[in-house]
Design a binder for these strands. Structure first.
Length: 193
DNA sequence: ACAAGGATCCTCT
DNA sequence: GAGGATCCTTGTT
């Protein structure tokens, strides 16, 4: 069942927790969200909005429940879901588990097999084939990418966020990286034990 | 107008 | 474990 816009009216950490286990649908592909990171807004030095509004981060200041797509290292389209209330928060989707469209997913990922297909934010963007034109796209309406309900996640793992060495210690150390405990479809490079 | 660096991934060793 | 790919955003001249 399609999730309505009210679902996203909370801070990024709460939304991150609620997003685990939910299903992202785009055309014939359906993914279960297994790992996310919360970016809490201007007071979070790891967050893109820590230095105020810029052309790039403008979607994060808009309505929640919409997409913010960030081009990283000139080649990876990172998929974020805007949280909060026009106050610069978002949740980065880091890993998913395939539910439907496995053949298409494997095709877009060079015919690889297993968790290497979808564990890592750059891979999610590659599989969904998003680009900058997906900025602002609402997930709570039919058409394009949408988010759908699923059974509650039993247990959640927490860890530090990845790749934010530039942030202040208090933000670097915050356990804002969340994952589904019993899923193999989680990037394991650091943190989770 | 310019330089620096990034919320990563892959291919080696 | 190390390094390259690749280009946009940002802050600074």
């Amino acid at each position: 069942m399609l999730i309505g816009s009210d679902f996203y009216q909370c801070n990024a950490l709460e939304l991150a927790q609620k997003l685990l286990g939910k299903k992202l649908r785009y055309e014939k592909i359906e993914l279960r969200i297994t790992e996310v990171e919360a970016y809490m807004g201007p007071d979070d030095s790891a967050c893109h909005t820590a230095k105020g509004k810029t052309p790039r981060n403008e979607p994060m200041w808009g309505p929640s429940g919409r997409l913010y797509i960030y081009l990283c290292y000139g080649m990876h389209q990172m998929v974020n879901i805007v949280a909060g209330n026009h106050d610069g928060q978002a949740v980065l989707i880091r890993s998913c588990e395939p539910i439907k469209g496995l053949v298409e997913i494997e095709k877009r990922r060079g015919n690889k097999k297993g968790p290497v297909l979808l564990t890592g934010p750059g891979k999610i963007g590659q599989v969904l084939a998003v680009d900058q034109s997906f900025n602002h796209h609402p997930l709570y309406r039919k058409g394009g990418i949408s988010l759908h309900n699923a059974p509650e996640v039993k247990e959640i793992l927490r860890a530090k966020r990845v790749g934010i060495d530039y942030a202040k210690p208090k933000d670097r150390d915050a356990l804002y990286r969340l994952a589904v405990a019993d899923s193999a479809w989680v990037s394991q490079r650091k943190g989770f034990k």
